[in-house]
């Protein structure tokens, strides 16, 4: 049988590594991207803390990071990664570049989601005597929740893509497996299995994200 050449143990291990990379990097991406996105929104034109200069600088930095192809970013960030985690290999070694690569993207999605919130709600909260923190945490974020969840699921899918790429520099995971067996050793069956697993992972993430968005949408 064709699939006999596949080491299921290895696939299981690689799958778990992918999930670990995804989970770890998604957590830190949201942790850093959310405040960045809020800051972008608040300092934007005609917004509560309008700061044209700060906004332009922040915006430019995020754009620069987003313009660098991820595979290049992986290589460029190696010294920083080693400094932060002690290694540039394995799950730990890819989380910093994954986070730096996707946090700016997620921050943009957060900014867009917050802009979708009815401005009148902000004005009403101000008129009630709400502070800037209350406006952000009690009004803006709850109102933008469906948009934020959609942003998280899109970001998770981008991360699945990036984890596969990080296999190329020794990150491990399903992508690594696909490259090593499928590409370098011509084991097409392994590549197909890993690709199918990645497809399933993306489909699951998207479906789960959609369910949550619908659950939290009240508009």
């Amino acid at each position: 049988m064709i699939l006999q050449s596949i080491g299921w143990d290895e696939i299981l291990e690689a799958g778990l590594a992918t999930l670990a990379m995804l989970g770890g990097s998604l957590f830190f991406t949201v942790l850093f991207g959310l405040p960045l996105g809020i800051l972008l929104f608040l300092t934007g034109r005609t917004q509560l803390l309008e700061q044209t200069f700060a906004y332009s600088v922040l915006s430019a930095v995020l754009n620069v990071i987003r313009s660098v192809p991820f595979i290049i970013l992986l290589i460029l960030l190696m010294p920083l990664t080693v400094l932060l985690t002690g290694t540039s290999l394995g799950v730990r070694g890819v989380i910093p570049p994954l986070v730096i690569g996707t946090a700016p993207f997620f921050a943009r999605l957060v900014e867009t989601a917050l802009r979708e919130v009815n401005r009148g709600v902000i004005e009403a909260t101000q008129a009630m005597g709400g502070s800037i923190w209350q406006i952000v945490f009690r009004a803006l974020l709850p109102e933008a929740l469906p948009g934020l969840i959609a942003g998280v699921s899109v970001t998770a899918i981008v991360l699945v893509d990036y984890t596969a790429m990080s296999g190329a520099i020794g990150g491990g995971g399903l992508g690594d497996l696909a490259i090593r067996y499928g590409y370098q050793r011509f084991k097409t069956d392994v590549m197909i299995v890993t690709v199918i697993l990645l497809i399933l992972l993306v489909q699951t993430l998207q479906a789960f994200g959609n369910r949550l968005v619908i659950h939290f949408t009240r508009k």
Binding site: G120, A124, A127, M128, S131, R138, P142, L145
Partner: peptide, 28 residues
Amino acid sequence: RSIRRRIGMVFQHFNLLSAKTVAENVAF
């Protein structure tokens, strides 16, 4: 903020929080 709490405001387009119930909006 304490001055604004003594002045209520009603808007043309209501500006209610869509993610909160009627009671939660009034309690806000």
